[in-house]
Design a protein around this nucleic acid. Structure first.
Lengths: 215, 215
DNA sequence: TAGATTGTTAATCGATTAACAATC
DNA sequence: TAGATTGTTAATCGATTAACAATC
């Protein structure tokens, strides 16, 4: 019996699911056809118990005495994460970072396709970058609906991020990756993942300065 | 009395410290001179108790009945994070993403300065991007030592990320932000922050598909 | 003063790990 | 068979929240 969590899967578990997926893809690339909770745990620095517990939230995927079939577990995880079919994605902000995201191969490998980009700069509007047309921000709603886009990425300056987020939400976007270093307000039913590049370095700075004994 | 953690500050706490710092910067930009655990909590979606508990790991920064002086708390957090002085940083890999990182203003704002870039591509070597010279990867060790660089960012393809990481570590780098979608092996005493852009989208995909009731 | 807010202790809640029967 | 490994329960560990005296 569960406690209070009530079928809610912890964020941390879902995040590790993505990591398991990456390791499985790697293992398969290396020609491995089966793996085990011990192996996955070793690769990622988790205990074997944690790997099994995480997977147990979603079902039974292994074979006692054998382990997990890579292909099978990989497909199962993609199903859980929802990346068994391709997601069209929009990018708002075609500066340095936005351009890099437009050209990032890793998205397509994992089931995401950037289909539209937006910018306020009239010099950029109309341009095709990596084969993707840049629309004016005024057309966000129209284009998002046309393409049935449910996921967006924000790569605009901090001071316009909230306005862009509001517009994306109004247009029906349900998930946002926010690269601007601000906290976005958003309604329930919309999810935001914040990626703050400077924070990553800050975390390292702290670790180095405070020389912790953990890895 | 502490339990077993023994003065070790949880990662999550340090991460929230960075978020408090961002909010303080924002508040000050808006002309606020004091704040409170309640206000910080509301802005970030935490409880007031959590804010106070987090700060308590590092000392006493507030005034009962008053709250926190923004400027003062900001300086204190920068001290804790180690960003009270500037850190020189290296970037390996000058593809789409590497270039974007070279031009990212957010680093300098937070106390980081990219001082060197590396790439294997002889067409890129010697080029100056955003005022930063691109060196051949063979010179990683030499340049890193010259500039006393302790933090690096890896923006190379997945299959060469480990080799680059090893070389950075050999050169004395103590902290790495890894943008390649692979798990890096590394010795204790070296810290790695993994940023996997596709994983961010995967997490959103999961949330949208599984329509959780939390925010 | 009354109201606001801190720092901190104790209580609660949740997540990780250990252990083991069942299975191949 | 003996060895390996799962899924799951119970025990442990750690993190969050509630509560409140002290303070301004």
């Amino acid at each position: 019996m569960e406690t209070t969590n009530d079928g809610q899967v912890p964020r941390a578990v879902v995040h590790r699911l993505s990591l398991y997926l990456r390791e499985l893809q790697q293992l398969m690339k290396n020609g491995r056809s089966t793996t085990s909770s011990t192996q996955l745990g070793k690769l990622l620095g988790f205990t074997d118990a944690q790997v099994r517990k995480d997977l147990a939230y979603f079902g039974q995927f292994g074979y006692p005495g054998i382990g997990y079939r890579c292909e099978e577990l990989l497909v199962a995880i993609k199903n859980i994460l929802g990346t068994d079919h391709e997601w069209p994605v929009a990018i708002v902000g075609v500066g340095n970072l936005g351009r890099a995201l437009l050209g990032y191969r890793g998205f397509h490998n994992q089931g995401f396709r950037v289909v539209a980009a937006f910018d306020t700069d009239s010099k950029k509007v109309g341009e095709k970058i990596e084969g993707i047309l840049v629309y004016p921000t005024e057309q966000i709603s129209e284009v998002i609906r046309q393409h049935r886009i449910r996921l967006g990425m924000i790569a605009v300056p901090a001071n316009s991020a909230q306005i862009v987020a509001d517009e994306l939400v109004r247009s029906g976007v349900e998930g946002i990756v926010n690269f601007a270093p601000v906290t976005l307000a958003h309604p329930a039913g919309v999810w935001v993942e914040r990626v703050d590049l400077a924070i990553e370095l800050e975390q390292l700075s702290f670790s180095v300065v405070n020389r912790q004994q953990n890895t």
